[in-house]
Design a protein around this nucleic acid. Structure first.
Lengths: 342, 342
DNA sequence: TTGTAGGCGTTATCAC
DNA sequence: GTGATAACGCCTACAA
């Protein structure tokens, strides 16, 4: 049915090794016969059998991709970046979604191992230690995206959002607008993302010689409710802040809703900056100033990294290190314009 | 490095064929040795080499998936359905995104052919005839999702949204609310989706013995601008309609924005129904009544279909036919409540 | 420059 | 029940 190099060899009157060489542009074959064979191959509708090739070559030119669900817009953009980069480098992507079920995560790893992918990229918000161990037993390079564990294996690296930088630029923006009393509404209790954003916030204050005021750091939840509950606490402060940087957009939206209910005008009475740039952020009133994470870029870099690791396999692993991708500030209405110092 | 059945055979003191049989639960092997071998395989960390297996079996248990971009939420949901179903049946998904570039579509097909996937699912809004021909040359079953071409190959089928049904239930809903003068704002010039929705609209009118009035069908574009421009035309009608069914949500949103600007109240002065259920639809004011397409379901059915085709390969192909998935009406505020007849 | 032979890890078909 | 042996389609020494 399907034509193989042997079939071509028969028709061309040469050995199959010659055909193999011709099709791989080997210099060990006469240029004329090479062209003749290539033409013939095209005519006969030859399609190289990657499985057979992989079997003998020991590499599949494919990478496994383990995600929770492609339905998450954040993940979808990362995956788009991965797909683009993989395709560009002649690699193929094998997709496995776990839907956050650990059993599915495990079987996904087994499947990828059996498929002999050359490397694996994982985007799960929380990669358990057990899972990680299982993952590393595949024996191929692994790149974790936005992972919050300590990775252990020699071929395992991670790549993520630079939360500290994000916190820094968000706060810096508010400072540049003239604000001096800037609150931070945290995310879920001491999550590592949150701590990093808080750290960026503090560094920006430091850089502007604004003393850090612990009473301006209020607990949130990462959801709208957190922002709502934070607002009254904020306003009851002896010297209420004129601006607030929020752990994420949902928190910022909650804060703004509560402000509207209390007749506090955003951005005039309170400037607000979020984090994430969820699609909704540009539609609400006032539209939300926020920090975007370059998701496709992250997928792209994860792919470059895993491919580099594949090439470098077993040698100079110390040239590699975890990477953090810097986001960008998107200025909209909620942070307002320059205010004069009182 | 990696352990093969031969390695296990050596340790177990049997032939590799026996190991192969034991691991595949063949009845042609002593139960005791089978258990012993399986235990050994687990201890030695054996992972079956799917490529080798596929090579001899002639099937890879993988399906290729060609999409435009995973960033499209519609596609993402379809893909989730496909992934779930494929995984459930022990199949693996190879993802290729074309970003609507025909060159990438073509190479994707070549890659999938070389990878010897057992079947292909394609979701591109427009599958060119040339591309389709190329696709069918793979020689494996193909299922097209939301395709608007005539497919030709014996193993090619398509699956899509039941637009006529959607138009029917949307219109029927308005009729049940008491409306008699119902407009339809079309999509882009005589697109097949649009014609089907219009047909559903007419059938619903027929079923209620409401005469079809061509002056109530107004041209739109599928974007908000189409809805905006349609509104004044609608209201200039000698007997303005009390309700409008729109080709899609974007059109409906445009219509509602224009209505707000002209102090026409939705739903009291004009009830509106859209189509698609874009995420935005539930957030706007008033929230939009619309027809949802069951995207994951479509992906799921596409997968079932392609797997059935793989099994049935070459026999009783006439048992198969194109499928249309019925959507569902989501009633929100924009269609209002029952109005009394005048 | 070309052909021969071996092997990648399986499954399948024979004998025994 | 089990073990040789031959595929599957390809690449790659080695020999010619």
């Amino acid at each position: 049915m399907t034509v193989s190099i042997k079939d071509i060899a028969r028709v061309a009157g040469v050995s199959h090794s010659t055909v193999s060489r011709a099709l791989s542009n080997s210099s060990l074959v006469n240029a004329d016969t090479r062209d003749r064979i290539k033409k013939l191959a095209a005519e006969m509708g030859y399609s190289p059998h990657f499985l057979a090739r992989s079997l003998v070559m020991g590499r599949t030119r494919s990478i496994g991709l383990v995600i929770t669900t492609i339905t998450d817009p954040f993940i979808a953009e990362v995956v788009q970046g991965i797909e683009d980069a993989a395709q560009y480098h002649g690699y193929t992507v094998v997709l496995c979604s776990s839907r956050s079920e650990s059993s599915r995560e495990m079987t996904a790893v087994d499947t990828l191992r059996s498929k002999r992918v050359d490397g694996v990229i994982v985007t799960s918000s929380r990669v358990g230690a057990l899972y990680l161990e299982h993952l590393e037993r595949i024996g191929v390079p692994v790149v974790l995206i936005n992972n919050h564990n300590e990775q252990s294996g020699p071929y395992t690296f991670s790549i993520g959002v630079d939360n500290e930088h994000g916190g820094y630029i968000a706060t810096q923006h508010l400072i540049e607008l003239g604000h001096r009393r800037i609150a931070y509404i945290t995310g879920p209790a001491s999550h590592s993302d949150d701590l990093a954003r808080l750290s960026g916030y503090r560094k920006a204050l430091d850089a502007a010689n604004i003393p850090f005021n612990p009473s301006l750091v209020l607990p949130g939840t990462g959801r709208t409710g957190g922002g709502e509950r934070a607002l009254p606490l904020l306003m009851n402060n002896e010297t209420p802040p004129t601006a607030a940087f929020c752990y994420n957009d949902m928190t910022a939206i909650g804060l703004m809703q509560a402000a509207a209910a209390m007749n506090i005008t955003v951005p005039d009475d309170l400037a607000v900056v979020g984090f994430d740039d969820i699609p909704f952020a540009s539609y609400i009133k006032p539209s939300l100033t926020t920090v975007v994470q370059l998701k496709a870029e992250m997928g792209l870099q994860a792919t470059e990294m895993v491919l580099d690791l594949i090439e470098a396999k077993a040698e100079n692993m110390n040239d590699f290190e975890n990477r953090f991708i810097q986001g960008e500030l998107i200025v909209r209405e909620s942070s307002g314009s320059y205010i004069k110092q009182e």
